[in-house]
Computed example of a mutant assay.
Amino acid sequence: MGEQPIFTTRAHVFQIDPSTKKNWVPASKQAVTVSYFYDSTRNSYRIISVDGSKVIINSTITPNMNFTKTSQKFGQWADSRANTVFGLGFSSEQQLSKFAEKFQEVKEAAKLAREKSQDKMETSSDQSQESGRETPLANQASSFNGTDDEKIYHGGPENPEQKSENNPLKSVVDQSKKWETELQTLTESNARLMDALQEANSNAESWKSQVSKCQEENSQLRNRISELDVQCQDMNVEREKNAQLTVRIHKLEADLQDKQQELENLRKQAEIIPQLMAECESITAKLQAAEVTNRDMNENMKLLQAEIDTNQQRERSMKMELKKFMDVLDGKIDELHEVRQGMSKLGIDN
């Protein structure tokens, strides 16, 4: 069936700087998919991560690997074959815990797979040794078979008694041929296993040297981690300060926007001020003209009042004269009435 994914998560991928062996270098610009793969044909486990078309993690899990949590959301492991240290930054502590648990589970599975392969190698080696010890018997059977063949096939015509005697010999011949084939196969397998064992021994030596290097790097990384923890604490303090400053900046930006709005309103009002000034000047001129007109009207009113007063005096005097004239007229009328009466009396008397 080939390789199949057995666990998948997302994380930011980092690799240790090969020059300094201290600083982390981002391998991905954003969170990418990180998966555990199981190869059923090879009985092996790998961690694979691809960013676009670029493979950024291809790490085969071995029993000697360890996954270390360096913070609440960050973990790392060293890969001696790739000669690097991988780091993963997760969005939550729960995702980191799940990945670490899966790493331990895969590590134990790889350990069991290695032990099974070693048991198979030891079993095949023992079988090859036993086959080697049985070789003289097979050769003896082969030589015995060869002499009998000469007797059977070169001795002339066979009778029924000879056929019954040769049947067991034929079975022995067939069995010896099978043993020869198995012996040859086991010899080839033993040679391949010896080559594999030598290669495994050489790989073990290289792994030991790489493990010692990894241990030294691990100690350096631990020292670096302690330094980074201190720096992280300082960074947390700075982050709190930055958060407070950010709130303050947002408030100041809001105040600045309000002030800018007020300034814009004042600018608009300042644009209206010349109009208002012109209107004010025109109104002032009109007011001055109205004041002049008012003064003229006041003077005219005074003159008119004087004329009115004069006319009132004249009217009073005319009323007095008219009264006197009426009184005189009434006297004259009374006199005329008396004259008329007298004349009427004279007429009657006449």
Score class of each variant (00 low, 15 high):
residue 88 L to K: 04
residue 3 E to N: 14
residue 83 N to V: 00
residue 85 V to M: 05
residue 278 A to P: 00
residue 245 L to H: 04
residue 236 N to G: 07
residue 170 K to G: 05
residue 306 A to K: 05
residue 250 H to G: 10
residue 130 E to W: 02
residue 155 G to A: 09
residue 224 R to L: 08
residue 26 P to T: 01
residue 95 Q to T: 03
residue 269 Q to S: 10
residue 230 V to D: 04
residue 12 H to N: 08
residue 104 Q to K: 06
residue 289 A to W: 01
residue 184 Q to F: 08
residue 19 S to R: 09
residue 200 A to L: 05
residue 264 E to G: 13
residue 319 K to R: 01
residue 241 K to E: 07
residue 139 N to H: 11
residue 261 Q to T: 15
residue 114 R to Q: 12
residue 82 A to E: 02
residue 243 A to T: 12
residue 135 T to G: 08
residue 333 I to D: 01
residue 341 Q to F: 12
residue 6 I to M: 12
residue 296 D to T: 12
residue 16 I to Q: 11
residue 182 E to Y: 05
residue 162 Q to F: 10
residue 315 E to R: 00
residue 299 E to M: 13
residue 274 P to S: 01
residue 122 E to D: 14
residue 38 Y to M: 05
residue 157 P to L: 04
residue 298 N to V: 06
residue 341 Q to S: 14
residue 61 I to Q: 04
residue 313 Q to V: 08
residue 12 H to L: 10
residue 133 R to H: 11
residue 80 S to G: 03
residue 149 D to H: 12
residue 60 T to Q: 09
residue 175 Q to G: 12
residue 137 L to F: 13
residue 177 K to H: 03
residue 50 V to Y: 02
residue 295 R to D: 06
residue 135 T to K: 14
residue 243 A to S: 11
residue 109 A to Y: 04
residue 223 N to R: 13
residue 261 Q to L: 14
residue 171 S to P: 01
residue 325 F to M: 11
residue 178 K to Y: 10
